Computed example of a mutant assay.
Amino acid sequence: MIRTVIFDIGNVLAGFAWHEYYEKLGFDAAMADRLGRATVLSGDWNEYDRGCMSDEAIVSLFVENDPEIEAEIRQAVSSITGIMTHYGYAVDWVKELKRKGYRVLVLSNISRKILQECWLALDFLPYMDGGILSFQDKLLKPMPE
Rank of each mutant, 00 (worst) to 15 (best):
Y22Q: 08
I69W: 06
F62K: 03
P144H: 00
E23G: 10
T81M: 02
Y127L: 06
D33A: 13
G15A: 11
I132E: 07
M31C: 09
G10H: 05
P144S: 11
K24D: 14
Y102A: 06
A57G: 04
Y89V: 07
A30I: 09
W45C: 07
T39V: 13
D33N: 15
T4Q: 03
D137S: 13
L13F: 08
L139M: 08
G26Q: 05
A121R: 01
E64V: 02
V5I: 15
T85L: 06
G131C: 04
K24S: 15
M1Y: 04
K141Q: 06
K113S: 01
R37N: 10
I73C: 12
A30T: 13
A90E: 07
I114H: 14
F27H: 13
H19T: 09
A57Q: 13
L140S: 02
V63F: 08
G10R: 06
H19R: 15
G36W: 09
W45F: 14
T85D: 07
A29F: 06
V12H: 01
A76W: 01
L120S: 14
S108G: 09
E145N: 03
D123L: 00
L120Q: 11
Q136R: 11
S79A: 04
V5R: 10
L97V: 08
G26F: 06
D44F: 09
N109K: 01
A90F: 04
L25G: 04
N11Y: 07
V59M: 02
K98A: 02
N46L: 12
L35A: 12
I110G: 08
